[in-house]
């Protein structure tokens, strides 16, 4: 019961954080992180679902400032981001998506303020061999989980794996929509706006609108679609 209560609180915190991020993407207003999370580094702070939610959302927490070129996050916001990064390192044997999402957070932090990171300057990529021969269904699922890496101009191994297989990712989008897996569809859609040679017949633009309409009450879905549409519109990055 306690486990499920914790999961529910975390899920609620993730929804709350994502809703605020959606508002920030839509309004262009500065997004504040500080004040939403308990202070300090003690056990109470790491048990705070708000801090865990920052780790779950990952690098997308700073997406408004990356994508909109609005004011960069304030130093106390970055402090919270950094605390989440260091409080939840991927454990030994963690799945590649967990390792990569942690890496994405670290790199986002390094780009915004290297002084906050313990091992400044070191952003060696994790290995990405697990995607090399992945069937298109699995590839799309993993990419959707790693949607925070779908950024204009991003050049990491995961982004290169996506760029090599635009038709496969498009098939994965079709599959996700057919299964009403709106979160996966939104994440795949965000990757697709960045890829060349996506078949025109996919109908990506109405597809993104469709996903938002059908699944947008989930703030995570709304956020990914919003991010995809902003990138599609070619916001300056």
């Amino acid at each position: 019961m306690e486990q499920s209560g914790t999961s529910t609180r975390l899920a609620g915190a993730v929804q709350g954080l994502m809703s605020e991020l959606v508002s920030a993407l839509r309004s262009g207003d500065r997004f504040r992180l500080a004040g939403t999370v308990a202070q300090g580094n003690g056990p109470r702070a790491t048990a705070d679902p708000a801090l865990a939610a920052v780790r779950v959302v990952g690098a997308d927490v700073v997406l408004p400032s990356v994508l909109l070129r609005c004011a960069p996050p304030a130093s106390d916001d970055l402090t919270v981001f950094s605390r989440a990064l260091h409080a939840y390192p991927p454990p030994a044997g963690a799945p590649p998506t967990s390792v990569w999402s942690h890496w994405a957070m670290r790199r986002a932090l390094l780009r915004l303020d290297a002084s906050l990171d313990g091992a400044s300057g070191d952003d060696t990529e994790p290995e990405a061999a697990w995607l090399d021969d992945a069937p298109w269904q699995f590839l799309t699922h993993q990419l959707a989980v790693l949607a925070p890496l779908a950024l204009p101009g991003e050049d990491c191994a995961v982004a290169r794996a996506a760029r090599r297989r635009p038709v496969d990712v498009a098939r994965g989008f079709v599959r996700a929509v057919r299964r009403r897996d709106w979160l996966q569809a939104a994440g795949a859609g965000r990757w697709l706006v960045l890829l060349d040679e996506v078949p025109q017949t996919l109908g990506l633009d109405p597809g993104l609108e469709f996903v938002a309409q059908m699944g947008g009450e989930d703030a995570r879905v709304a956020f990914q679609v919003e991010a995809a549409q902003l990138m599609r519109a070619g916001v300056p990055v």
Partner: peptide
């Protein structure tokens, strides 16, 4: 008419 494949 090659419509959106995700509507099938």
């Amino acid at each position: 008419r090659s419509p959106e494949p995700w509507t099938v």
